[in-house]
């Protein structure tokens, strides 16, 4: 495992824990898209079914379990424990527009036509667009709390570092997985506009608000 991959995983973990802590400490999930969080829970579940079939390393297994556990906890906080604070009126992205096309694509473009492999492929495609309900929510309300911005930034950094990891692996190991790379590129591009706002506003101490 190279440094990019490891830092990418840590950044992903940081994002997930940051969101959990934010909701828990503030006792509120205002400004957070429950739909994006449900999509991420679906992504982890579909991808990590190989926990039962394929052992890779203790690190790999632990991270997968933590990601899944945190992800489901977040969904539970939003839709049950702090349901009263959930901003459903602004969380109006139609997730079927993401789930249906990515599911169809997973059936058409995959490495191997087996149930686990199709689910893995579906999770890769779905992850690349799963943040859209959250970004849509931010654009609809015109702003995001600073901690939400940090969450989105860490999440964007994660896939960006994975791109460097894939360049590294291609160069030194001759390894490449085109499905993951293309989806990862799409995912990273979706964050670019946000990266710009984050660097020009949030890092200068301002709250992230979009021009009217």
């Amino acid at each position: 495992m190279n440094l990019f991959r490891f830092l990418g995983d840590l950044s992903h973990l940081l994002a997930i824990i940051l969101l959990l802590l934010k909701i828990w400490k503030s006792r509120s999930c205002a400004g957070i898209s429950g739909k994006s969080q449900v999509l991420f829970a679906v992504v982890f579940t579909a991808r990590y079914l190989d926990l039962f079939t394929n052992y890779i390393s203790l690190y790999n297994t632990c991270m997968k379990v933590v990601y899944i556990a945190c992800s489901f906890t977040t969904v539970w906080l939003i839709y049950s424990k702090f349901k009263a604070t959930y901003d459903g009126n602004h969380d109006t992205f139609r997730v079927e527009f993401l789930v249906v096309p990515t599911a169809i694509l997973a059936f058409l473009v995959n490495h191997d036509f087996t149930p686990l492999e199709i689910l893995w492929t579906f999770s890769i495609y779905l992850e690349s667009v799963a943040i859209l309900p959250q970004l849509f929510m931010v654009s609809k309300t015109g702003e995001a709390e600073t901690i939400t911005s940090h969450y989105l930034f860490a999440l964007g950094v994660y896939r960006t570092l994975y791109l460097f990891n894939w360049i590294w692996r291609y160069h030194f190991e001759g390894f490449f997985d085109l499905i993951a790379i293309v989806a990862g590129l799409v995912q990273t591009v979706l964050y670019c506009d946000f990266f710009y706002l984050y660097i020009t506003k949030v890092l200068k101490g301002k709250k992230l608000s979009l021009p009217a």
Binding site: D9, K64, W120
Partner: peptide, 10 residues
């Protein structure tokens, strides 16, 4: 690319 070998990334 050898999918049968499993996916070692997260």
């Amino acid at each position: 690319v050898e999918p049968s070998a499993g996916h070692d990334e997260l």
